[in-house]
Structures are given as C-alpha cells and as structure tokens.
Design a protein around this nucleic acid. Structure first.
Lengths: 368, 368
DNA sequence: TTGAAAGCGCTAACAC
DNA sequence: GTGTTAGCGCTTTCAA
C-alpha cells in the first residue's frame, strides 16, 4: 500500500486525507460511499471513523466529473411575482406563482424518492443564456416550464441531456412534454353551464394572449359553444392579467355595462380562480347576487376558491402531478435516452360548487 | 499553438472540441465564458460560434472542481405534506408546507439576483446522511430549516462551508440564524385582545410540543397574560397538529364543553392560521358567532385568513424575507468566512380584522 | 491578449 | 476485498 506523499491535512479534507488516516486506499474510501456493501465491515468502520474525525464531505463536483452524473434534476420556472411585495397575506399572489410552487413540490418529492435533488431557477427577462449556463451544466436532466427558456437554448441543452417541457404545448416536438387538459376541462365546465343549468348568454374572461394555458381554455370554451349550437366568439369577451385585481376589473366593467351586450350575461367564466375570486368580490360589492343574477366559474382549483362566497365552481388541475410526471419522464429517459418522445396529457376534473348554481349553499364543515 | 491530439468529436463536446474548432487554446475558451472582456472580440466570436455549432454546454462539475465554487446555494426544508393527496383544492394543506414554499421563493429570488441557483431537498425520516451527501457536496452555502438536519451533520457541513439555520432557534450557536419574532407577535396579539377588547377569559390552542415556532408563540401568550396580571397557564389549553382539521377539532372540543372551564372562553387564540380557519368553520357550523360569542385569532397571515368569515385577525410573518435574509447571510459569509455569527430576528406585524372584534365586518373590495 | 501545463477530488477499470 | 492508475472537463498560474 503506497499512501502517496501529499501535503499535510490542510483545507478541506479529501479522499486522500481520509484514506491516509484510515490506512486504506482512496478507492476504498470511494467505495464506502458508493457501495458500502462492497467493503468489509471493519474496513468500512475505519473509513467512516476517519471521515467523521476529519469532517469529510464528498465533493459533488469531483463525483460529477468522474462519474458523469450529478444526481440532480433541474427545473426552470417563470417568475411572475412582483419583487416589491412580500405579501403572503393579501391573497393577490399571482396564480402562476402558486402553480409553480406546486410543480416544484411535486418534482422535489418525486425526485427525492428516486435519489435526486432538485435545482431550481426562475427565468427572468435577463436572458436565459445565464439560466442555461447556471443550471444545465449541473444536472442530469432538465424540466422547463412553458415559455421560460429560449427554444434555441432548449435545443442545445436537449442535445446533451434529457429535457422535458412542462405546463404548455410541446415547444420542441422531439422532447417529452407534460401538460394538463385545459381545453377539455374548460369545454366540460362550459357544457355544464349550458346543458345542466340551461344558460346560453355566456361571457369568457381570458388571460394574456401569450398565456398558452389561458388560450387553451378559451378554445375549450369555444368548443362548448360550438357543440351547443351557440355563437362561437372569435375572441374572449374581455382579457386581463391572471390576477384577482384583473378579475375585479372585469366584473366592474360588466356591471358598468361595459360588456358587448347591455345587461349582465347569465354566466361569467374566467380563465383562472384568482380572477374568478376577484369577480366574486366585485359582484358582492355591487349587490350582484351569485349565482342568482350571474353564474361565475374559475379554473385551477386553488384553496381560495373553496373559501369564496359563494364557493367557486372550477376545474381542478393536478399541478403536483405535473412535477411528478416530469421526473418520471426524465428518469425514464436517462435510462433510455433513445426512446421516442412521449407527450403526457393529464386529466382535469370538474369541481361543482355554489357559484354556478350547484348545491352546497353554505360551506358545510366536513367532519374529519 | 499545439492542439493536443484528442479523440475526434464524439459524445458531448468539451472545451477541447470548441478550442480545436475555433483554433484557439482551451484556456481561451474558458476565458470566453468566465470573463468575456479579457478576450479580443474577434477571438470571442470565433469561440462562441464554434460552441454554438457544437452545442457546447460547460460542465458544472468540472468548473466546480477546478474553481472550488459551484454557484449553487442549498436549502433543506421539512416535508410535512401527505404524499397521498394531490390537493391544491381542498385547502387543508399543511401550513408548514406553504411556509416552506415562501421561503423557497424568497431564497430563489435572492439567490438568483446574486448569481446563484438554488438546490433544494426536503428532509424526511429516512436519515439526513443521505441529504447531506446529496446536497452539501454541490453547494457553496447551505440553509437548513429548523429540525431538518441532524446537529452532528450540520456541524460537519458547517466546518466546510457557510451554513445558516432558518425559522427556528439557533441550534448551533456558531452559525448564522434567521428567525421570526414569534414570541413578540403572539404577545402583541394577545395584549390587543386583553387591553383593546377587554377580554380576560382566553384559551390558547398550541401546536405539537416539538414545533419551536408554536412553542415560541405560546411563550408570547404567557408573556401577555403575565403582563396583564392574568393567570399564566403552564401549558396550552389544547394542542393539535398545525392543520385546519386540528383547528376544527379544537373548536368542537370547546363547544362540547371539553375545555378546562364550563362555557366558551371569550377568545380563542390558535397557533396558526390554518387551525384558526378550521375553528372558524366549526364555530359557524354550531351557530357560535365570531366575534360576538368568541373572538378568534391565528398566526401567519395566509391568504385564506383574509377570505375567511369573518376575516381572520392574525400576525403576519415575512416568510419570503426569511429566505432573502438567509441568502444575504450566506453570501456575506462566503465573502468573509471568519466573521462572527449573526442572529437575525425578523419583525412580524399585527393584522387586525373582524374575527377579534375589530372593524371590517364585510370584506369590502379594495379598489385596485 | 493568448497558450502551456498542472492540478481540482473523485470514479472506474483493471490488477492483485 | 482492496489497491493502482488513468482520466473526467474545467480553471489557474505562469510564460510568452
């Protein structure tokens, strides 16, 4: 056994220091951490003891370099939140933020259960170059939420490692993709209003035109109108940011007679729950009764909706599952890099509450 | 210029491939990515072009190994959520989960603005060894939320890199620590009830005894009782998990006469908002009027509280700022490893709403 | 401004 | 079961 002559224990301890102290080779130290069972128990103990005394922590970088895998998965998500406000209290957090939180949760949990950690970074206007440079080099696979990374960078990165696109249409055809069935959900919800409640005078408040989710929902709305033989609007009745404030404004516009038709429509469908809650508040303030005077619906299934008055009818999307699916696809492709791209569309579910005219007039406590 | 004989472009491109193609040395390629200004523009362009054509992405591991810094900050947070439920809709998500989400947000944002990415992993019962091994080796600094990492591991890691403890008492005295003034907040809130509303028959529903935050809040409650000359209870009137369900159960117990005194107390203070919202629901179901029959308060300042009926009086904590402070401390210590440990206590603020008897009987829409 | 050469700390063959 | 020996792909002096 030749313990190479090395500088005395200085700075952060390395395998060499541990090996020297435990009187074994560096290979054995390495083995103790990678496959403990491949080392005899007494040897292992010696090594572990030495490591403990030295305060040894294996270098992730060195491991990554030598093994060409890091045990890290990456996620790039959009950052819509206003940096100014630290407002867990006012409830006007952007829905996309909450949504991203759930996806982060889902990914983190799924990743961890498979032995991966999660590296995250929000994309900002300041150029994705930075982003890709920051993240891509450190991970074994990469999930990107819709519209957060430039297609070109995505292309480059995907040549080097598994990449899955999330929560939006597949931007690059050859990549795995996870999305929620926004269109189908909104179609079903609209159909419910038309068929089950017999409403025909509807209005849809869309999101920004560059929000793929919101646009898909509008398409579903159009589908339902078409299916029911109602006029199919080429554009949402109104548009707004996906915030509570924007929902309030939409309702106010309608109440003020600012809509396309003189009176209030029979139903107001909003592109997400945040907006819908805002609309509910505004209607209440103007004495407009929901659902008697107008039915209101949202989309997402956030907790706020269940607490609203009346409780909000909506479409629940499995946001956490998006993250879980992303990890599944990534891990799967790490194992089989050449398999065909797989697009996953997650089903959504209708949540019928009082705001559309369905039961449950009072939020009855469910016994635990 | 000697372009070393290397295997032809195979697998993922490296600096060597880019250097060869751009007819420069690897050192120049490296410079282009680290300090572009140190390279003449034409040279830089050549390199960038070659990199683009090759689909080159710098290896984070190699950079990390060579430079001994990764540009990554780590966060370890507790995972309380029930893996079974994918329930963005039912609103009974654990408060700690939401709380952690905010901290993650805050850290991510602050980290990114300083050029760092964030590596996250929830701690589970399955042993922190894994955690430390997974994360610590990859980061330049490490934030850990209270009770997620074994003190021993923390000790080891902190010998190797900056570590800050979060959202709880400083577990290791020599580390930076960020916490919120739970005690002071609960004291103030309790004082408000006693002094401003003249209530003297109070009950406090605590969290699990192993939740430092909840315990601090109880201490604040005791302080206020002491200050007001009221009897100081040695223990919370009731205890429960920090969930809505637990809050409901607490209220039910009280309504059923299960409390220490026969009737309902004048005020019920709960250790967090989730519980308080549950209590509000249960009281409503039993026809107990809030605040007329009993005042109710929470702690945290979650959006749900503002939507509750009546809107919940609470203490708002700057959860996002915790994450921001953590990053500030970490970055600061990376720059000055030897500076003295700095404990940061973030102030909280009272949010007075209707559930304690303060104004705002109806959630009046605030004009945006 | 650019190049050459020496590691960074580890894993992976392979030998013993 | 354990040791030897090459790298992994970059950054970093130091020269030129």
């Amino acid at each position: 056994m030749v313990t190479a002559a090395r500088k005395p224990e200085t700075g952060t301890p390395t395998v060499y220091d541990v090996a020297e102290r435990a009187r074994v080779s560096i290979a054995t130290v390495s083995r103790v951490y990678r496959s403990p069972d491949a080392v005899r128990a007494p040897t292992r103990e010696k090594v572990l003891a030495a490591a403990r005394e030295l305060g040894y922590v294996p270098s992730g970088s060195a491991r990554g370099l030598a093994s060409r895998t890091t045990g890290i998965l990456g996620l790039c998500f959009p950052d819509y939140t206003d940096p100014e406000t630290d407002t867990p209290g006012d409830g006007d957090e952007n829905a996309a933020t909450l949504y991203a939180d759930h996806i982060i949760r889902g990914m983190e949990r799924a990743a961890r259960s498979r032995g991966y950690a999660l590296l995250i970074a929000a994309s900002l206007r300041d150029g994705p170059t930075n982003l890709v440079a920051t993240l891509a080099g450190h991970v074994d696979g990469f999930a990107v939420m819709s519209r957060t990374v430039d297609a070109k960078d995505l292309e480059t990165v995907s040549r080097r490692m598994p990449v899955v696109t999330l929560a939006g249409p597949a931007e690059l055809g050859h990549l795995d993709n996870v999305q929620v069935d926004n269109r189908d959900g909104q179609r079903e919800l609209t159909r419910h209003l038309i068929t089950d409640h017999g409403l025909t005078d509807l209005a849809f408040v869309g999101g920004p035109a560059d929000s793929p989710d919101a646009e898909e929902r509008f398409l579903g709305y159009q589908d339902a109108c078409r299916d029911a033989g109602l006029p199919v609007p080429p554009e949402p009745t109104l548009r707004g940011a996906l915030t509570r404030t924007a929902g309030r404004e939409a309702a106010r516009t309608l109440v003020a007679g600012g809509g396309p038709t003189p009176g209030l429509p029979q139903a107001l469908l909003l592109a997400n729950d945040q907006m819908a809650v805002g609309a509910l508040e505004e209607f209440a303030a103007h004495g407009v009764r929901v659902p008697q005077d107008i039915a209101v619906t949202g989309f997402d299934g956030i907790p706020l909706g269940a607490m609203a008055h009346p409780p909000l009818t909506t479409v629940r999307q499995p946001s956490r599952r998006i993250g879980e699916e992303a990890v599944a696809l990534l891990v799967d492709r790490i194992a089989a890099p050449q398999r065909d791209p797989r697009p996953v569309v997650l089903p959504v579910s209708l949540v019928l509450r009082a705001s559309c005219g369905c039961a449950e007039p009072v939020p009855a406590p469910r016994r635990g």
